[in-house]
Each structure stands twice: as structure tokens, then as C-alpha cells.
Design a protein around this nucleic acid. Structure first.
Lengths: 212, 212
DNA sequence: TACCATACATACGTGCATGTACGTATCTGC
DNA sequence: GCAGATACGTACATGCACGTATGTATGGTA
């Protein structure tokens, strides 16, 4: 009965305290993500987060140093998930245009979860300040823009993307339009995918992409 | 010398108290708009608003009942300006597609001022709540979407816009992509106009619009 | 000039959310 | 089983920003 030392994730009758801790952390993280997406950072009330996860603020302050660290953990978690689910999708495309469109569609699907608006909400809330949370959001957004910029430059070299404004400006508009459209649609499947792809295609200066 | 009863807006030596009041109100309103755009509602500190306008909180609470009424006044002011500068531009276009593209370009130009993000910031902050401020923002956003929907339907009837997802979904994506792109570009003239127009054209399913 | 209303500044009270200190229960190594 | 650590709950203290009450000066009016 005490063989719950390792590997007994959901089968072991007695959960080890490491598992308990991880479960608590996950639950709190998910609740915080939902809360941040809905209310933003300033309006996020930690007691509500803890209650929604089935705990009290005591548990929260045991897992995270303070509100800021909680938010940073949420951001990192969302970013990791995004890179896995969306970034990977774009990486295995043959040409730049296909990668950009896959990125758009993947992001739309990714944002069907309520976690969608975390990044944009926090970016808006902290833009201009030099708050650590804002800085982190800015950082991961910047990597996205950079990736987009590289794809645009590649597409322009091989002729699949027409010339136009500086690649960085186009990339900024791309990501912005994508996020804006997806948030406005609020996960209205299945149109979100098509419309997201159309938005980025339009910004890139391409003609209407295939509806499939 | 006491002929400052009426019409002596900026010429009268002694400003009447109605003028003084109006000036104060304008200054406070403008500062509040900048603040809301930068920090959102919750993070907006009224003392900072008043100080930035050259007053104290006393003046602010003399002009506005409370924080909420101040925010509502800002929203109304921004909305009126938008309808005048952007809505009018779209109204005098001959066909629906031209109107939608004019709307995109006009919005981009409109958002070169820092007031740009007020609406989107507040909409994100209050989405899901039933706060009066959020309701008002929702209301004016809805009228924009409705206008866009009508234009899309008209364009589809006359064949200038291809069929696709429900007009309302397309309209939502249109406005979202437009706002997102413009915010991301942060007033980078002159590319913002072109890229905004491209974004909406893409969402509508049109081919690349003229670069002019 | 005397009086009142208005515009604005200052001072105070209050609520709410964060962070911390402390208490309690459950798990692990000996 | 027992001592230590770990997970979590409870209670308290602090700060910050809002809203209000009060004071003061300036403009309008008789």
C-alpha cells in the first residue's frame, strides 16, 4: 500500500506530497490563467483565484512568492503550451507562406480555450510601464514578431510574398491583426480558423487563401 | 473691459468662469483619456490624472461625480470624435468595399493619437462583467460591428464581396483585426494605413487592395 | 462694496486587497 | 511510532486609492 513512491501518478491510492503539491500548483495556475484572461492583473483577486481552485490564499502563497511570481508562472506556462501546440505546427511547413498561415490557424484553435487573451490583456495593461510582468510579456511577444519577420523576409526572397512596408512593420501588423481577430471572434468555431488565416494573408498582401 | 460675457473664447482678457470650467473639464478629460489608454480603468489613479492636467483631485471631483462617470465621459468623447472623423469618412463612399476600406484607413489615422487604445483596453478589461463602463464600451463597439455587418451584406448582394462565413462573424473579425493591427503598429505612419486596409480586405476575402 | 455662487485645494475617513506571521494537519525518514 | 518537514488554513497588519467633508479664493451680481 505504501508503494506510491514513484510512477503512481493517478493509480496510487495514497498520493505522495510531491504529487499533491503539483496538483495544487496546477489547479492554482489554471485558475490564475483564467482569472488573468478575464480580469487582467490589477483586477485579479487572489482569494477568488484560490477559491476557484479549491484552496485558500495560504496555499497560493505557499506555492508562489507573491502575485507577480504567480503571473510570471502563468505567462511561462501559456507560452510553453503555445510553442508546443502552435509553434511546432508552423515549423513543419515547407514554405514561409504555409508556415504563416498554419501559425494563424493554429493560434485560432489555441485561443478557443479561455486562456486566449492572457497575453494580449497583459501586454495592453503593462505597455509603457517597466513592470516585470509586462517585460516578460513583451519578451515573448517580441520572439513571435521576430519569427514572423524572418518568415516574411524568406517569403519575399523566394517571391511568394510581395514587397511592401518593412518586414518588421508587417510582422507587427500580422500578429496584431491575428490576435485581435481571434479575440473578437472569441472561439467561434469553425469560422475563426478561416478568418484568422484571411487576416494574416491580407496583411501580407496575398490574395485570398484557400478556404480549406 | 467687462465685455467677456459671451463669444470671448480666447480673446477676452478675463476668462469667464464657464470658460474656466470648460477648460478644466477638457484638460481633465484629455488626461483621463491618456491615462485610461495607458493604464486601463483599474490602474488609473485619479490623483495622477488631476496632476497631469494641472489640478488636484478636488477639481476632478467637482467636475465629475466619481471615477465611473469620468470614464463614461471619456468614452463618449472618444466615440463622438471617432464618429465625426472616421464614420463620416466612410459614409461618403460610393460602394460598400470602399466604405470598409476607408473605415480601416480612417481608424488607423485616428489611432495615431494615444487615445487609440481606450476602447479596446476597456473592452478587454470589462468583458464578461456587467460593469456600467464595460456596458457602454460594449454598446459602442456593437454599433460598429452592426455598421460593418450591413456593409458586408450590401457588398455580398452586389457581388463585390465574396460569400463566406456569416456576415456578423466576418464583421467581428474585421473590427478585431483592424484594432489589433493598429494597436500593434502603434501609429507607425505611414504604413499603418496600408496595413490596416490590407487586414480588413483579407478578412473580407478580397484580393490585395491598391497600395494608394 | 457687499453678498452669493462657483471653482478648486486640503484633510479626513473607509474599504479592500496584498503580504506576513502563526497555527494545524498530513506525509516521510529513522 | 516519532521527529522533522511539508502543505495548507487562519488571523493580523499595512498600504493605497477612492470618496467625502470642509476650507479658501475668484468670478458674477445687486
Amino acid at each position: 500500500m505504501t508503494s506510491s513512491t514513484a510512477g503512481a501518478a493517478s493509480s496510487g491510492r495514497r498520493p505522495t506530497q510531491a504529487e499533491r503539491s503539483a496538483r495544487s500548483r496546477s489547479a492554482l495556475l489554471e485558475a490564475a490563467a483564467r482569472g488573468l484572461s478575464r480580469y487582467g492583473y490589477a483586477n485579479l483577486v487572489l482569494e477568488q483565484v484560490a477559491r476557484e481552485a479549491g484552496y485558500t490564499r495560504g496555499a497560493l502563497y505557499h506555492q508562489f512568492k507573491d502575485k507577480e511570481e504567480l503571473a510570471l508562472a502563468v505567462i511561462e506556462w501559456v507560452d510553453e503550451t503555445w510553442r508546443r501546440e502552435v509553434g511546432g505546427l508552423a515549423d513543419q511547413q515547407p514554405d514561409p507562406v504555409a508556415a504563416l498561415l498554419a501559425l494563424a490557424r493554429g493560434h485560432a484553435v489555441f485561443c478557443r480555450r479561455d486562456v486566449a487573451r492572457v497575453v494580449m490583456a497583459l501586454r495592453l495593461e503593462f505597455s509603457g510601464q517597466d513592470h516585470p510582468v509586462g517585460g516578460e510579456v513583451e519578451r515573448i511577444s517580441e520572439t513571435g514578431v521576430k519569427r514572423c519577420t524572418r518568415l516574411i523576409n524568406a517569403g519575399r526572397r523566394d517571391g511568394s510574398i510581395p514587397p511592401g512596408p518593412p518586414a518588421r512593420a508587417v510582422a507587427l501588423a500580422c500578429m496584431g491583426a491575428l490576435e485581435g481577430a481571434v479575440i473578437a471572434l472569441a472561439g467561434q468555431a469553425p469560422h475563426d480558423e478561416l478568418l484568422a488565416a484571411r487576416a494574416v494573408a491580407g496583411v501580407l498582401g496575398l490574395d485570398s487563401p484557400p478556404a480549406a
